[in-house]
Design a protein around this nucleic acid. Structure first.
Length: 272
DNA sequence: AGACGTACCTGACCGC
DNA sequence: TGCGGTCAGGTACGTC
């Protein structure tokens, strides 16, 4: 469920729900996520005002008045649900109860996600954040930056834009979608792209992510609503998950291949 | 430094 | 119904 737009959506929703509150209670059911949930988490975060909620790459950062930060990542299958959680469901690993009495539940079947804490000052020293590239929606992600970065990269452009050291937040879905819109084959070696292709790709990555955020990502429903309607942006996908269906532009069959262990979807006719 | 394979874990789905 | 295989929106680590 989580690429950048979904995480952004979760962060926006969380912010409106938790700002000014504090955590009054934590229930932990499993500690063995991607990293262990720290055993002293309650001591660090309970009863301090929540002063900010932000996104960094695909991480959710909840800043507290005592200069601690609660850091969460949703992995492949993580969800954050707000509301009364009367009886914990399967794979609910941690439930935070707010001073407002609302509850925030972290649910993650595959447990590739993460819940840790860090001091505000220590964030920049975290290994997690040590080698992250620029935020795609920021002014740091430019044609100039990307063209310099791609010069030394001979791997396919698809796996390259999914590399967090190159740019953060571009996951499998939006990598496929952006390359389709940019008419660039996912197989092209990154250092073979022309300047105008790179310029176009930068603009399109920003556009695709912004549109998906506008649409509330694809996890909005799990999160705001109790009825599990499918995400809104899913309906706008041009290639992802559409193997053997017709390209909306040229009617060729959408192809599916494997790159770096992940599925890539593309139009062999439109994307060169 | 960068490329690549593999590992982490559970559930859903498909063919037999 | 059960079994085995494959797949899934992410990241980290070892090796070459």
């Amino acid at each position: 469920m989580p690429e950048l737009p979904e995480v952004e959506t979760v962060v926006t929703g969380l912010r409106s729900e938790v700002l000014g509150n504090s955590f009054h209670k934590i229930q932990i059911f499993r500690t063995d996520l991607r990293q262990q949930i720290p055993s002293n988490i309650a001591d660090l975060i309970l009863n301090h005002e929540i002063i900010d909620v932000r996104r960094k790459a695909k991480y959710i950062l909840i800043h507290l008045a005592n200069a601690q930060v609660l850091i969460m990542h949703l992995g492949m299958s993580g969800k954050i649900v707000i509301g009364k959680n009367e009886k914990p469901k399967k794979h609910d690993h941690i439930i935070f109860t707010l001073s407002s009495n609302q509850q925030i539940t972290f649910n993650d079947p595959r447990r590739f996600g993460l819940v840790i804490t860090c001091s505000t000052a220590g964030i920049d020293k975290l290994k997690l954040f040590a080698n992250l590239g620029p935020e795609p929606l920021s002014s740091d992600f430019t044609t100039d930056y990307l063209s310099k970065t791609l010069k030394s990269r001979s791997s396919p452009i698809k796996t390259t834009i999914m590399n967090n050291e190159v740019v953060v937040g571009v996951g499998n879905i939006y990598a496929c979608e952006a390359l389709f819109k940019a008419k660039i084959s996912p197989l092209r070696p990154a250092n073979f792209l022309t300047i105008s292709e790179i310029e176009n790709l930068v603009a399109i990555i920003k556009e695709v992510l912004a549109l998906a955020i506008q649409a509330g990502g694809s996890s909005l429903k799990d999160y705001v609503n109790i009825n599990g309607d499918l995400g809104y942006f899913q309906n706008q996908l041009q290639v992802y998950g559409r193997a053997n269906l017709d390209c909306h532009i040229c009617n060729s069959k959408i192809l599916q291949i494997k790159q770096g262990g992940r599925s890539s979807f593309y139009c062999g006719n439109c994307q060169k």
